[in-house]
Design a protein around this nucleic acid. Structure first.
Lengths: 222, 222
DNA sequence: GTCTATAATTCGATAGAC
DNA sequence: GTCTATCGAATTATAGAC
């Protein structure tokens, strides 16, 4: 409705500009609404209204509502795992291929915790990813179950760091650590704040990351 | 509610038996379907078909689909927290009011882990509760955020067990421990099994509980 | 209490004009 | 690419007969 008319009003040939702009407006609005209210609770009408674009835009640019969700999921997952892989790679370089426990865990947890910062551009993306993990479509669940290649890099590193433990034990401890991470939803922070009567604040993500690393590292050393 | 069923079954006037029976059939079928597929993905038609009762039963016995979800949530939450409170009470009795860390954590984690056993009557209920926590209605989210009385018993005990730590730190570590617990969904077990190439099995819940307790206890001792 | 029939919405998707 | 108008399907909830 309005964005196209505004853009077309000032220029005469900005067709390609408005194409990409519309698709991106839908992408961003959908990600935010899905993250805040869940996939099933957000309609295509909600998305296009929030984005200020036409109702048919979702189907034209993405094919379907499901495909839109999947595209957001794919892009954000790739971004996050790229950051993790880079940190793990750097940790390997610093430690001749055998980083200590804490550096491995830091490579796994630091990127998502960075995203969680109040002023971070990807703050809402992390909430989206956490929700998509449990509320996503069958297609997303299939990818989550099948594609574990990024996690294998971490489990391999952990197995090397704790060769004295049985592999089974290492896999379970990785599972526990991921559980700690996936519990960081807005609603859970609110609940914790009520319980602690305002003594906990998730705004300081550096402190939170440090707490998580210390807890997980101790769990792995046990 | 359910006690009526048992009482009426042995007597001759079992008109009330079929009343309660229908309500219970709906309750059980809905809990299972919600646990397996999520609240939004299950229709009233799915529930009544699985229960073998009439479509109108849900609205007659519970008022609405939302109210049905809330009633299941309330009953199972009460059951679970009753078991936890009992275990914490017993731990207090054994330790003159100051149980060691591991016993407090055991009172928190043992009941839900017991429910998780392959042959346990409440196995599906635990999956329901985990899903309801993130996929529930606004009413459920409100209760989760407001009613933390059962958790406060545990945070108080943990604060007494670790008086050297700042309260803030203790609350965060409890948050991490709950994250470990809430990550125990069927889908996450499947994913872990793929990653570990079949080396992990969640069937042995006694071993799993022991692993979780050791991990969390170490995290609290750090 | 149970059942059938249906009301009243809401939603995703698309055809066709521009 | 964008927009309007609308289709067709699915949903929850309820009215009314039995």
């Amino acid at each position: 409705m309005s964005p196209t008319t505004d853009a077309a009003a000032s220029h005469e040939v900005d067709a390609s500009e408005s194409e990409a702009a519309t698709k991106n407006l839908v992408f961003v609005a959908a990600e935010r609404l899905f993250a805040l209210h869940g996939f099933q609770n957000v309609s295509v009408r909600d998305i296009t209204a929030a984005a200020g674009v036409n109702l048919a835009s979702v189907n034209y640019h993405f094919g379907s509502k499901d495909a839109l969700l999947f595209e957001i999921f794919k892009r954000r997952t790739a971004e996050l795992n790229r950051e993790r892989a880079k940190m793990l790679h750097e940790a390997n370089d610093r430690n001749v291929g055998s980083p200590p426990l804490r550096e491995i865990l830091a490579a796994l947890l630091t990127p998502p915790l960075r995203w969680l910062a109040p002023d971070h551009e990807r703050r809402i993306s992390l909430q989206f990813l956490i929700r998509a993990r449990s509320e996503g479509t069958d297609e997303i669940r299939q990818v989550l179950k099948t594609d574990v290649s990024h996690l294998r890099r971490f489990s391999d590193a952990l197995l090397r760091a704790r060769p004295d433990l049985s592999p089974e034990e290492v896999y379970w401890r990785l599972h526990f650590t991921l559980g700690m991470l996936h519990n960081n939803r807005f609603a859970e922070f609110d609940r914790l704040n009520v319980l602690s009567e305002g003594q906990t604040s998730e705004a300081d993500v550096v402190a939170l990351l440090d707490r998580m690393l210390s807890f997980a590292e101790a769990g792995f050393r046990a």
